[in-house]
Design a protein around this nucleic acid. Sequence first.
DNA 1: TATTACTGTCACGGTTTGATTACAATAGTT
DNA 2: AACTATTGTAATCAAACCGTGACAGTAATA
Lengths: 224, 224
Amino acid sequence: MSTLILIVEDEEDILELMEFNLGREGFETMGFLNTKRVIEVLEEEKVDLILMDRNLPGTEGSEFVASLRRSGINTPVIFISAKDKDEHIEEGFERGGDDYLTKPFSMKELVLRVKAILRRTQKTSVEGNVTYRDITLNLASRTVIIENSPVELTKLEFDLLYALMGNQNVVLDREYLLEHVWGGDEMYQDRTVNVAINRLKEKIDPDKSKEYIKTVRGVGYTLC
Amino acid sequence: MSTLILIVEDEEDILELMEFNLGREGFETMGFLNTKRVIEVLEEEKVDLILMDRNLPGTEGSEFVASLRRSGINTPVIFISAKDKDEHIEEGFERGGDDYLTKPFSMKELVLRVKAILRRTQKTSVEGNVTYRDITLNLASRTVIIENSPVELTKLEFDLLYALMGNQNVVLDREYLLEHVWGGDEMYQDRTVNVAINRLKEKIDPDKSKEYIKTVRGVGYTLC
DNA sequence: TATTACTGTCACGGTTTGATTACAATAGTT
DNA sequence: AACTATTGTAATCAAACCGTGACAGTAATA
């Protein structure tokens, strides 16, 4: 489960240099000199990050990214450009870029910015510490700390709480929860969720004084 | 429910300039000249992003952030520094920074980088907002803010208001509303809509001073 | 102003929805 | 295999929600 970085850069020597340095840090890379085959690759492979030159012959890199965004592809992007005027930086960000590097840049900085973006975007799966108020989930050890004390949860309860904590301020309906927490193709009834939620509430807030989980009548449940 | 940015910067004029520019973009800011009271604030308020000067007298900003991370606080951080040597940038990133700005930087770039970080970290709450005058609906959390205060609506009321807000300046007749808000194939009477509209009016404008919803006699209702 | 049609308001009660408990079935452990 | 923990389902209860009908209020028209 390594990290795959896709690079589009028309200057071949720079492309090689980038691939070499990122490879040395343990990243897998795929280099392209233009955007021709990029969309296919994005559909086939799970790409974690795109490094995109903005000054490509033909297509503008930022226009390409804008079209990716329009078709629902939200892979993070770092733009690379020789231009360093504000207007261009602005355009890059507005079109869905996550960071911006201007040539010439050091390979060290490239690696650092790549790591920072990845840290932010794969936070949950890699680092694995999610917090909400005084609740902390550790995904690796599947442990739960509430008010500095450990709380024991079953697998189902943990997964359910994780789903809620990963979607703070979002109302999750029962269908969604059955799909994402229970998963599989078993058929369950909506009531099943009610009972599971109540068992979870009982464990994380026995006094019923915290009101972590709010039920939204007719819709579902939320952490807010 | 706006976005709160916490800034630590010991140069007072720069702090003011940052607060002014971010405020103009609609962000709430809290400025500090040192890290003394910051931890308390982070525990009390829901801070969305921290801007941290690394060259503070006394504590190193990056050391402070590292300690935040150790105590499980994962609020995103942008470091700000006069140093632009690689080694310092590296230290900032390694200690849990999400981005790095070196002085002097333009306010435009600051704002852009702030937005890029927020886009990644709070995708749910930024998207899917509908507004009309001083009413804001958040579809994900199904919350309603009117004049900066939350208002509680039932599922039906929320769906009804959403239908109206999604069709501003369009008169929706009762048949349309029954079809789109009530849905299903149940048969309801037109009067049902009247009562629902009035219950909604009562909740979003108890004083009857705003006149959000206009009734178009013989036709239906509209938001205009 | 008088008439009429439409809309607002209120109270009532049925229906839906969720919380809670108990029980059964299943999986995991000793 | 016996035991325990886990979890789905059924049953019961309480409460929120909302559809309906009756009537008052209001706007339109002549």
